[in-house]
Design a protein around this nucleic acid. Structure first.
Lengths: 115, 115
DNA sequence: TAATTTTGTAACTGATTGGTTACAATTAGG
DNA sequence: CCTAATTGTAACCAATCAGTTACAAAATTA
């Protein structure tokens, strides 16, 4: 089964869960109380999130505490960032191509706004 | 059918396609030449990408030219960015919670009940 | 005009997904 | 010790997904 962070955050419920788990550690029951779906459904979502490192589990007695590990979003951040200049400079694909061509041939001034 | 940018970029082939379409405009046949899957499969992927604005279509005669519109990644970027401080400051969820508690108690309670 | 190229899409298929209910195991509390 | 609470997971189901092959339509070209 494919289990990467891109697939993990594709589901809106899972995004809501990791949003929730950033504010405080919560037990599965506490998480499920925020949603309309059943506790097992939440449990499966959290399992998927944990499998790609987005959620960390701490067991204490019979209870489990989940918390978000946003560091695992780094992969997504990195992937998106490589395209950031494209839309922040308001260049489309062709525009970028032409801009880089002009830069090579004529040293045309090129806004290089970084993140 | 759910068609948001998070679901669109969940598939590795689709991520490869929009990567490809950032370098130059390509026809569906040209795109398909880069992959092992069939042309109709690529066509369906591109349709999904176009439906959420990640790909822009230009028809010229019988041919179609696709190009990436990375601006549509803004939604993902925005979502990820709201968590960036968490992992860049090397704070875990509990650490952030305590840090915000230490300031003032003016953060509103989180409500995320779905309907 | 006739044949070829380019493309989208319908129809189908097997795998995956997101959900459910039911049940078992472990811990807590009387 | 017995009962209740907390949790994971198995078994199942309908819907969606990602792929295929087959075909039709429109534009090019010989």
């Amino acid at each position: 089964m494919r289990r990467d962070v891109f697939q993990a955050i594709a589901d809106p419920n899972r995004r809501a869960i990791i949003e929730l788990l950033g504010h405080s550690q919560l037990t599965p029951n506490a998480v499920a109380a925020h949603f309309d779906v059943s506790r097992p459904a939440i449990s499966k979502h959290i399992k998927i999130l944990a499998e790609c490192g987005l959620v960390i589990v701490t067991q204490r007695g019979r209870e489990r505490y989940y918390e978000a590990n946003y560091k695992a979003l780094g992969e997504v951040s990195k992937w998106v960032d490589q395209y950031r200049n494209f839309w922040e400079n308001k260049l489309d694909a062709l525009g970028n191509f032409l801009a880089s061509e002009a830069k090579v041939h004529k040293s045309k001034p090129h806004k290089n706004k970084q993140k």
